[in-house]
Design a binder for these strands. Structure first.
Lengths: 205, 205
DNA sequence: TGTACATCAGTGAACGCGCGTTCACTGATGTAC
DNA sequence: TGTACATCAGTGAACGCGCGTTCACTGATGTAC
């Protein structure tokens, strides 16, 4: 918090933080520019000193989200140590942890309906996130019996899909199912079974 | 199309159909009551002869969606014939087919943010859909080596999550990934690998 | 160190718009006699 | 078969609201001399 006089100090990030809070609470549709401005202690018009408009703000949030996301995944992967398998599992766990810890970012990224082409920066950030994820899959892929090794990009798409599905269906009050199991357990067991199907986990582990 | 005079004939369903078209095109947030009324050839106020309001209309669409969904899954499952495995795979394929063929319903069900408790009918319909899905998983579950057999509800939650994730991430212009593979192929291979991990598919099939 | 001035971040009032919803009404339909 | 009347599905105009955005402005900051 900078001093609060006529000039805010760092209004740009303060607006982002306010929007994140609101999006996390009410979803990306429920959030309004005016409310974000009010929460940041500022007039709605002030927003236009820092953003081209509502979409621009949401896009910037999504961009920051993808950056954080990629960083987290990268750190969880940890260069493939101690083993490609455990590193990969950690990466998948990081996915769910990210969705839980940064709900506003997650919603802006995946539920706001924003186009990745809104800005080149956004496109770049989302690409980077995908690459981190795919790289982990590639490293692990080396350990798959080459006879039936799916492309790493397919492999990572499967894991991404299951992770996203668990987040959407079982971490919110969403339809589809009242969570029969804790999402973390659901995702971990699901990925475990999948990896066993790839021959990466011994059948009776 | 009934005759179009002062009285519409079957305005209730016509409004639902109009809303479905709009939701399918613009998502559940972009859709407005007024547009749906206009598309049905009627004044916005006429909607209130048939629905309590916007939410009630969306809830009814979601309800019809869950009914269709359950019917489709049930038919695809086909009593577990010719085999539990192939019937289950058909059920999973039906999931994606439903999302493709009934985008408006799908969005109303899973992306509108509507609560399943909006009406008892809606809750009942969604329960039925889940039960159909879980029943297929249960039947297939019998063939899993009992030593490591996960609860059928967990099993079906995994499949549901992966299916939903594929729909959300790879069948729309959504972020997360420009589809590297056709969604149908992605889901089929993903489920195949998963089922192999359960010992339900021979390792080298 | 002090003063003049350019810069720029925020204000406050207002806008146009489109939304969901209400209300008194009217035209069409169907039923009783 | 014809008429009177109740019922009810739609109309049309209007409402209040809150949104995103604009605009001329003003107060604060920082820099040149």
């Amino acid at each position: 918090m900078a001093k609060r006089g006529y000039h805010h100090g760092n209004l740009r990030q303060a607006l982002i933080d306010a929007a994140l809070t609101l999006i996390g609470e009410q979803g990306p549709q429920g959030f309004t520019l005016s409310d974000a401005a009010k929460l940041a202690g500022v007039t709605p018009a002030a927003v236009y000193r820092h953003f081209a408009g509502r979409d621009d703000l949401v896009a910037e949030i999504a961009r920051q989200g993808f950056e954080i996301f990629a960083d987290l995944m990268d750190r969880a992967y940890n260069g493939g140590k101690p083993s490609a398998l455990s590193a990969f599992e950690a990466t998948a766990r990081a996915y769910l942890a990210f969705a839980r810890k940064f709900p506003g970012h997650y919603m802006a990224m995946f539920e706001s309906g924003i186009s990745l082409n809104t800005s080149p920066d956004l496109a770049r950030a989302s690409d980077r996130a995908r690459q981190v994820f795919t790289r982990a899959a590639e490293a692990l892929s080396q350990h798959i019996p080459a006879t039936k090794r799916p492309p790493a990009s397919m492999f990572s798409a499967h894991i991404w899909a299951m992770s996203h599905g668990v987040v959407e269906l079982y971490t919110r009050g969403a339809p589809g199912a009242r969570a029969p199991f804790p999402p973390e357990e659901l995702l971990e067991t699901g990925i475990g079974i999948y990896l066993r199907g790839l021959g990466l986990v011994p059948p009776d582990s």
